[in-house]
């Protein structure tokens, strides 16, 4: 069981690592998605452990829904950013600072 949990946490860490190190916006968004999957895994594990798997599934489906909305918005922003900068790199998004 704890192996699953470790797997979930590991996925979250991998996703976080991606947001810290990747400079491509799409890769960062994929990082977010990886994190979300890790969290889902932990929830399913929790459902299995406590015997409320059906409820856990409901939770996971809801989180997936939320993630889908977030990613849709993120992608639309990426498109807008690309139109402005002709680049997907976050190095083009460093004008607001200080």
């Amino acid at each position: 069981m704890s192996g699953y949990a470790a797997g979930g946490v590991a996925l979250v860490i991998i996703g976080l690592y991606a947001t810290i190190t990747r400079t491509n916006l799409l890769q960062i968004i994929i990082g977010l998605e990886i994190m979300a999957r890790g969290v889902s895994l932990v929830f399913i594990l929790g459902g299995a452990q406590s015997g409320t798997l059906a409820a856990a599934q409901a939770v996971v489906v809801t989180t997936i829904l939320i993630e889908a909305v977030t990613v849709a918005i993120a992608l639309s922003l990426v498109v807008a950013a690309y139109q402005h900068n002709k680049s997907l790199s976050i190095t083009a998004l460093r004008r607001l600072k200080g």
């Binding site: 979930g8 946490v9 979250v12 996703g15 969290v39 932990v42 929790g46 452990q49 993120a74």
Partner: peptide
């Protein structure tokens, strides 16, 4: 990006709590 990372971390915490207590 930052806000989503944050809320996912919080959700991870919620998930862990859930796996303890159901």
């Amino acid at each position: 990006v930052l806000s989503t990372v944050g809320s996912l971390l919080a959700l991870l915490g919620i998930g862990v709590v859930y796996s303890w207590t159901g």
